[in-house]
Amino acid sequence: MTIATAPTAGIPVGPGLSMFDPIFVGIDEFGHPVYITLAYRNLLAGGEPGGGKSGLLNTIAAHAALSVDSRLVLLDGKLVELGQWEDCADAFIGPDITAALDVLKRLQLVMNNRYAWLRAHGRRKLTAADGLSVITVLVDEIAFYSATVGSKQEQEEFVALLRDLVARGRAAGIPVVAATQRPSFDIIPTSLRDLFGYRAAFRCTTPNSSNIVLGHGWAEQGYTATDIQPTNQGAAYLIAEGGTPRRIKVAYLSDSQIAGIADYAAWIRRPRPLPAQVPDLTRLDLGMAA
C-alpha cells in the first residue's frame, strides 16, 4: 500500500492474512483449535438469543478485516453487533431494507461479472492467485430483513437476492455468513436455509430447533444443541470440514479488542467506500458472457 506522505508513527504493515486461509473460530472439546475455510463456503449460525452468534460473526469479521484480499459487507439490523466494523467495511447496512436490497443487487452484479470473467478465462472458480478480493457478506439477524421490516415484496426480494448469493456466490468469492435465532421456514425459506454448507448451532431450547439449524436427523443421533448449558455462552455444534457436528467454543472478542482490531484494520486498509451513485442495476452484462 503506497501513501503520499509517510506518517511519523511508522507505516502500518498488515498481518498478511488472506480470506483463503483457515479462519480460527475457537477450540473443540479436546482443547484443539478449530479452523474453517470460508472462501468457498457459506455459514449459517442459529441459536437462542445470547447464545454467542455475534461472537462467531465478530471473529469472522475480525479475520476478514485483517485480510488483505477481503471486502466486508455488513448487514446488521441491530446496528451494534457489527457496528464497530463500520470503518473497515465497504458497506454497512443498518435497519434499512432499501439499502440492503441495493447492496445485494450490487453484489449480484459483481457476481455475474466475475462469472463472466471466469468463463472468459476458461475457469470455474476464483483462487487466491487471481488477486480479486473475497467479498464477505455478514448478515446478523436475517429475520429482520426477511420477515420484519419492509413490504412483503421487499422481503421476498431480499430473500431471493440472498438465495442467489448463497447459491452462486461460492465460486465467485462471495461467501455469506448469516445468523438468525431460529431459521424456520417462516423466517427464511427452507430452500435458502439448506444451501448453507457450514452450520453452527448455538444453544437451542428444543431438539427440533437444533435440527432446524444443523439439519434434520442430527438430534436423533445425539448431536443436539439443547445439551449446551445456558450459562456457557459461545458453545456450539459446528458442522464444517469433517461432516459430523463438533462441539466447539467460539473465540470471544471483547468490545475493546474489537475496537482495537477495527482501528488497526481501518488504518491498514483505508477502505474505499462504495460510490454514492447507484449504478444502473437493470443492465445485464450478459453480452460479455455470451
Binding site: 475457537g26 472439546e29 459461545g234 462441539r247
Partner: peptide, 10 residues
C-alpha cells in the same frame, strides 16, 4: 474445556 473463555489470536 468448552466452558473456558477462548481468546482470538488476532
Amino acid at each position: 474445556v468448552l466452558t473456558a473463555q477462548v481468546g482470538s489470536p488476532l
